[in-house]
């Protein structure tokens, strides 16, 4: 009986195959008429805020095994200064997480598991991805094969961000690693006057999670509110 003995050449072939199979591919962007390119770039900015806004959402968190839990989230975003204030609480009003991003993350309150290392940072990245235009360089624009307008940005942290706007004005934002692995996917639905009624956020890779944000209220806020001092503890007629 002839025994198969792997040669150096075979091992090299297998290594090359493994290398190719481990590389993911970014979705193909088809280029549009150059005259239409500015419109595409304009459309790609629609998901992002240009004035300060306060959002209140119900947050439906999916746990492993199909269980779900619902929380309330308040987010205030100041796009000009790129600052974010975010609060998560229970339906009964118990404050679980309160943090602010202004060049760096400052956590005011974090009850476990919201005090986990890097939770605040990752959460702020998700909020930025959702509401603020990508900071990186716009490297490509066109349409996906399904006809959606798409812009591709190369971010500052070796991430690639695709922003695609569907024909029904709903949108998707996808963040990829430098090796083109999908890291985050944000899908916005029921968009009315530029504000989505529902947003789905999915995280992939080492820590997979999914979150559904249902809009309770959205209101423009004054830019000056960003510099307001915290209120004092109220008198309770003691």
């Amino acid at each position: 009986m002839k025994v198969f003995e792997p040669s150096i050449r075979w091992i090299l072939v297998l290594m090359v195959m493994a290398l190719f199979s481990s590389c993911s591919h970014l979705p193909v962007i088809n280029h549009v008429d150059p005259a239409a390119a500015p419109d595409t770039k304009e459309r790609c900015l629609r998901p992002f805020l240009d004035v300060p806004y306060r959002f209140i959402h119900s947050l439906e968190v999916s746990f492993p095994g199909g269980r779900t839990g619902t929380l309330l989230g308040v987010t205030v975003v100041y796009p000009a200064e790129k600052t974010i204030h975010s609060v998560i609480m229970t339906i009964e009003g118990f404050l679980l997480f309160d943090a602010r991003y202004d060049k760096e993350v400052r956590v005011n309150r974090a009850v476990p598991p919201f005090n986990a290392e890097q939770f605040a940072g990752h959460m702020m990245e998700d909020v930025r991805l959702m509401f603020l235009a990508p900071e990186g360089k716009l490297v490509d624009a066109g349409v996906y094969t399904d006809g959606s307008s798409v812009c591709r940005y190369y971010g500052n942290k070796d991430t690639i961000v695709d922003v695609s706007i569907h024909k029904d004005e709903s949108w998707e934002i996808k963040a990829y690693s430098s090796s083109h692995d999908l890291l985050r996917k944000i899908r916005a639905f029921d968009v009315q006057t530029g504000i989505p009624g529902m947003v789905e956020l999915s995280g992939f890779g080492f820590r997979e999670y999914s979150l559904r944000l249902n809009l309770i209220s959205a209101e423009a806020v004054s830019p000056e509110a960003n510099h307001m001092r915290p209120a004092k503890t109220p008198e309770d007629d003691e």
Binding site: R54, V74, V76, H85, V87, M89, E92, G93, L95, D98, V221, A225, M228, P230, A231, P234
Partner: peptide, 9 residues
């Protein structure tokens, strides 16, 4: 139930 917070006006 009224939740009063600094983040809310």
């Amino acid at each position: 139930q009224q939740k009063h917070m600094q983040i809310l006006t």
